[in-house]
């Protein structure tokens, strides 16, 4: 008897592909949330594989805070072009200009929480009924609780105390008008799995993920990039360091780590030895003990 067994990366890949196809089949108008970070890059790569040799049957949606690294934006544009995917952009700047949201003030201001309004407005105006997110359950303790198919009410809210049961590989994507779903194909990937998958598939990443020289300053135990949108305090000092990013969100809340890892092998070795979670450098999670859950309840990614 031959043994039919799959390596764990093959298993979680097959699962993610199944979820992506199920999303295309169950919803009228899905979109893939694309931030330019490694998880959404992996998700888009999986989507391209899932529908091969056809194109991805839904657009990429980027919620642009206006505070992105230029590398991210460049990568986004060329990546979408390469996939032949339509790119929809929700602009936080436009939400601010139209008075939908008010910009936070002061040196610790971040547009991170404003993104939720722009995201929900875009979902409504584009009539998206499912948004594919690159969230992983190993990232954070509230995310560890999320279903693959995660229901959102007509206000875009998540109700973690009352999630739908989700059994076997049977997904219930039914909703009432005005409601939508968030779908997480990478739920069972860990940070290490993502890196190993990137290596196995030869996926090209933005240079930000590899060691480079950059002007940074220390704040709250993280190294923030020096940039126009992050005003420094008198007491804070810019220094040049060799750094890389473990996660990439908007500039105001994404911390760098000191590192000399300049290729995938070195990054993987570093991830394997890491003593801090990747979100340990994210200022947006440090605002309270349940910061992620609170944001997700409101409709955050």
């Amino acid at each position: 008897m031959p043994t039919y067994s799959l390596d764990h990366l093959d298993q979680i890949e097959a699962e993610a592909i199944y979820i992506l196809r199920e999303t295309a089949a169950q919803f009228q108008n899905p979109a893939l949330l694309f931030s330019g970070g490694k998880d959404s890059i992996v998700m888009a790569h999986l989507a391209a594989k899932a529908f091969w040799p056809a194109r991805i049957p839904f657009p990429l949606l980027h919620v642009d805070t206006g505070h992105n690294f230029t590398e991210t934006i460049d990568y986004r544009d060329s990546f979408a072009e390469k996939l032949g995917a339509r790119l929809v952009i929700g602009s936080v700047q436009a939400s601010i200009d139209s008075g939908r949201v008010r910009e936070e003030k002061g040196p610790f201001a971040s547009r991170n929480s404003l993104q939720t309004v722009t995201l929900l407005d875009t979902i409504e105006s584009q009539k998206f009924d499912a948004c594919l997110g690159g969230g992983r359950r190993d990232e954070e303790k509230a995310r560890a609780k999320e279903r693959f198919f995660s229901h959102r009410d007509e206000f875009g809210q998540w109700d973690p105390k009352n999630q739908r049961p989700e059994l076997w590989n049977l997904f219930n994507g039914r909703y009432h008008p005005g409601e939508h779903f968030r779908v997480f194909p990478l739920s069972n990937f860990t940070e290490m799995d993502v890196w190993m998958y990137i290596q196995r598939e030869g996926i090209e990443l933005p240079a930000l993920y590899f060691a480079h020289e950059r002007e940074v300053f220390a704040r709250n135990g993280a190294l923030l990039a020096v940039a126009d949108c992050v005003p420094m305090l008198e007491t804070e000092k810019a220094v040049k360091k060799t750094v890389r990013f473990r996660t990439i969100g908007d500039i105001t809340c994404t911390g760098a780590v000191e590192s000399t890892a300049s290729n995938l092998d070195e990054v993987i070795a570093e991830v394997a030895a890491a003593r801090q979670t990747e979100r340990g450098t994210r200022a947006d999670d440090k605002r309270s003990e349940t910061a992620m859950e609170d944001r997700k309840r409101e409709g955050y990614f």
Binding site: K141, A144, P160, T290
Partner: peptide, 22 residues
């Protein structure tokens, strides 16, 4: 508390929904 990640779970000291860990 490593798995009971929801606010309501931490307040009540019980698990409400399944947590996945790796």
């Amino acid at each position: 508390l490593l798995t009971d990640g929801l606010r309501a779970e931490r307040e009540q000291g019980i698990t409400i929904d399944v947590a996945y860990r790796y």
